[in-house]
């Protein structure tokens, strides 16, 4: 059971649409029995770091009133995602030695970095303009487009 959880194809092969809506109340419950500190370093640890970064980023985005803080949160979210890509892509971390080049995760991470740079540039430009107009970067003041 443990192997199958650690296998890189957990999502690709394990999820299928079944006729029964609720086969189990919470199918991922066995994961709760997993203790990272007693396990050798594997994909799951990278995922934990990524999840922490992701969550920190989201919380930062949700709670920061400063637009720059929000941008930072976004960077955290993106990089949390990047760690996951890198982790799933590493041949060392993949147990079955699938015949791939092994660079697809890194490539996507590079794309994400690229996108993050572009996004940061645009977002900073927006923020700067907002500041020019409103003399502040408090995003709670930015409700001109509310419905």
């Amino acid at each position: 059971m443990g192997e199958s959880i650690l296998s890189g194809t957990v999502f690709a092969a394990g999820i299928s649409v079944g006729p029964a809506i609720l086969p189990g109340i919470f199918p991922l419950a066995p994961l709760l029995a997993f203790n990272p500190f007693t396990e050798p370093v594997g994909v799951i640890h990278y995922m934990i770091v990524g999840a922490v970064m992701f969550t920190a980023g989201v919380v930062c985005m949700a709670l920061k009133r400063n637009a720059l803080g929000v941008l930072m949160g976004i960077e955290l979210v993106l990089n949390g995602a990047n760690i996951n890509f890198i982790a799933f892509s590493s041949p060392y971390l993949r147990g079955d030695g699938a015949p791939t080049l092994g660079l697809d995760g890194q490539l996507i991470a590079l794309f994400v970095i690229l996108l993050a740079a572009a996004e940061a540039a645009v977002a900073l430009a927006i923020t700067l303009n907002f500041y020019n107009n409103h003399a502040t970067v408090d995003i709670d003041r930015a409700d001109d487009l509310k419905g």
Binding site: S4, I5, V10, G14, V17, I21, P23, G24, F26, P27
Partner: peptide, 11 residues
């Protein structure tokens, strides 16, 4: 999704 989709984890 976890409620609606049967996962191989479940069985």
């Amino acid at each position: 999704a976890s409620m609606l989709f049967r996962s191989t984890l479940a069985g």
